[in-house]
Amino acid sequence: MLTFSTQQPALDQVLELLIQSFEEAFPDRIRSYYVEGSLANRSTVSTSDIDLLLIFKGRFVDEAESQRVEALAERLAQTSPIELDLDWKDELRLQEGVWPALKFGSELVYGEEIRDQLPLISLEQWTRDRMHSSFWRTGHLFHRTLPLDYPLQYPQPDEEFYGYDQRTVQLKDGREVKSTRDLIRLVGWSATALIAYQAGQYVARKSDCHQMYRKYVADDQLADLLQEIYELCRGRWNYLLPEDPAERRKLRSICEQTLRFENHFLLLYKEYLLQELAQQNVSAQQQALFFLRMTPYRDQTIDATLNALTYSPHEEIALTAKEILRPL
Rank of each mutant, 00 (worst) to 15 (best):
A304I: 05
I195F: 01
Q7N: 14
A308H: 07
A71L: 10
T168I: 09
P27H: 05
R298S: 10
V217L: 06
R236M: 02
R93S: 12
L222H: 09
Y154L: 04
F60L: 11
R137T: 05
T320L: 08
S253G: 13
D224Y: 00
E107W: 00
D219S: 14
W237I: 04
F56I: 06
K250E: 15
S32P: 03
H143F: 03
E124P: 09
F265W: 01
P119F: 01
L277S: 14
F22W: 00
H132N: 15
S133Q: 12
S106Y: 01
K250P: 05
K178L: 06
R128A: 15
Y154P: 02
V282G: 12
L15E: 08
Q170N: 07
E112C: 11
N238V: 07
Q78M: 14
L76H: 03
I121T: 14
I229D: 03
I229S: 02
H314N: 14
S46P: 10
N307P: 00
I184M: 05
T127P: 03
R252M: 12
Y216H: 08
T145N: 08
Q95E: 13
Q257D: 12
R59M: 09
Y216S: 09
T127Q: 08
K172R: 12
L274G: 15
E70V: 02
F161Y: 03
Y110T: 04
G200T: 09
H140D: 06
D116H: 11
E70F: 01
V14I: 07
D165N: 09
R249S: 09
A308W: 00
L222C: 09
R205I: 01
Y202N: 11
G174A: 04
G200Q: 13
R59Y: 00
D51P: 03
I114M: 04
Y239K: 05
L86C: 06
P245V: 06
R75G: 09
G139W: 01
W99T: 15
T295N: 06
R128S: 15
L183D: 02
S134V: 02
F261R: 08
D158R: 03
L15Q: 08
L306Y: 00
A193P: 04
L108C: 06
